[in-house]
Design a protein around this nucleic acid. Structure first.
Length: 470
DNA sequence: ATGTTC
């Protein structure tokens, strides 16, 4: 694969074969070692009908289902552009929420074990069923799928700021519950308010560095402050929706005369029954993901109130696995686009009309969860941001789960983390080993490349005090 | 990511 370095942290793959647009990869040479497979996927995505601009890859790009994780692709809705479930991923609306406590790390040092024990008891995690909230039945699940975080807050599980500081005000419009299969609903019923497994986590963190005090203050964080970061998605419900709609599109594609270089890129026009059906189901999963993070926040707040008398305010909640209909100027014309972000975070620039009033002038908060035991970042969107205002989403795995578990035992890893001052409350020691930091890229390098490429700006760096994992 | 291979 020939990569032409256009400028630092920006590489280009010239269109060849069936590519309709170039590939654009934001990264350093080091971050792209062993990236052959994911760059092949960047090229494949560039062949999709209606794609505009480029097939983009963020610095944390790695191999995924059809599309690379860390990929951004926008299609022109009014020019036959397609939507593809593979461009969103199986964990629809997987995302991150950051809450800031009204206390500093040193103030809760002695109480931290009790806080972690409390969280360890109330946060459902790991594969399979379990959740903090059991919907009364299908009709209540449907209210969650339509209302998202707004419904959870209306039911007493949050406060108004939880909605103003959440992407889309907590609710994605146009959720179509009829497109969520019975099987997807069945899986979703038992997992409302649960973390899941793999790289999902709930961490108690401390702000270790502030790069821009004005922006940090506006977002609601300061040096030394305790924060809670929640990283999770739409669990089995989102997974089932992706499975169902990939299958439907795989069958329907030929009727639209669409051929793709990889069946995992199954897609149909946005403006087709199958496209609308998927986007309706995806919106329902997006609402489920937000409600999920809202309910985990609610449970966390109860523990913080009980153990240390602290309050937690929402900094922001943003998804990094979603397709959205957005208007952007491409080649000098305003166009309605379906922007697929898969393992990529929307990063609206300062002044964007969709941002909350109190932080609009500073840009959109972007939340980057690091690898367990390392660091996480609070970033902000920038003027002139490329890739339809998108940036990275995390560290990005480089070692298979199996390979990771061979490097260290869960017990040894727990000992190492505790020795480094990080309390761990894992559900499974085997899963813990699979998440060893060595299995991931260096989040500091990923963030430096994202900032160097002009996609975002750093606001603060957070380090873990305690981690709750599946 | 995922009732971790319908």
């Amino acid at each position: 694969m020939e990569l032409v370095e256009e400028r630092p942290f920006r590489f280009r793959i010239e269109p060849h074969g069936d590519m309709r647009v170039p590939g654009v990869v934001f990264a350093s040479r080091e971050l792209l070692e062993d990236a052959e497979q994911s760059l092949r996927q960047v090229v494949n995505v560039a062949t999709l009908p209606g794609i505009v601009g480029a097939s983009y890859a963020m610095p944390d790009v790695h191999w995924g289902y059809g599309f690379p994780i860390g990929g951004v692709a926008a299609t022109a809705v009014d020019e036959g552009g397609v939507v593809s479930p593979g461009g969103v991923g199986f964990d629809i609306s997987c995302g991150v929420r950051l809450l800031a406590a009204d206390c500093a790390g040193r103030e809760i040092e002695r109480a931290l074990p009790a806080v972690m024990d409390g969280l360890g008891q109330v946060i459902p995690r790991g594969a399979g069923p379990g959740g903090v909230w059991k919907p009364s039945g299908r009709s209540e699940l449907e209210r969650i799928l339509r209302g998202g975080s707004r419904y959870a807050v209306e039911q007493g599980h949050g406060e108004e700021r939880d909605l103003t500081r959440c992407e889309d005000g907590g609710t994605v419009a146009d959720a179509d519950v009829a497109q969520v299969s019975g099987r997807a609903q069945e899986r979703g019923l038992g997992q409302v308010g649960s973390l899941g497994s793999a790289n999902h986590f709930l961490e108690v963190q401390q702000v270790a560095e502030v790069y821009d005090e004005t922006v940090a203050a506006a977002f609601g964080v300061a040096l030394g402050q305790v924060c809670v970061m929640v990283h999770c998605g739409s669990r089995g419900l989102g997974h089932q929706i992706c499975t169902d709609h990939v299958r439907a599109m795989d069958w329907a594609m030929a009727r639209y005369g669409i051929t793709v270089p990889d069946r995992q890129l199954a897609c149909t026009p946005v403006d087709s029954p199958e496209g609308r059906d998927y986007l309706g189901a995806m919106a329902a999963a997006a609402n489920y993901g937000r409600a999920n993070r809202q309910l985990l926040s609610d449970a966390t707040r109860r523990i913080f109130r009980r153990e240390v008398g602290a309050r937690l305010s929402l900094v922001y909640d943003v998804s990094h696995n979603l397709a959205k209909i957005e208007t952007h100027v491409v080649d000098g014309t305003r166009r309605r686009l379906c922007v697929h972000r898969k393992g990529a975070t929307r990063a609206f620039p300062p002044g964007h009309p969709e941002l909350p009033n109190d932080i609009r002038e500073f840009g959109q908060p972007v939340l980057i969860p690091g690898t367990m035991g390392t660091a996480s970042y609070l970033l902000t969107g920038v003027t002139g941001g490329d890739a339809f205002f998108s940036t990275c989403h995390g560290a990005g795995r480089v070692m298979s789960r199996h390979a990771a578990a061979r490097t260290i035992t869960g017990k040894d890893l727990r000992t190492r983390l505790e020795r480094d001052g990080i309390a761990v409350r894992p559900k499974s020691l085997r899963s813990l080993a699979e998440e060893t930091p060595e299995a991931y890229k260096d989040v500091d390098a990923v963030v430096a490349a994202s900032e160097g490429a002009g996609l975002c700006r750093t606001v603060a760096r957070l380090v873990p005090l305690g981690v709750v994992k599946g």
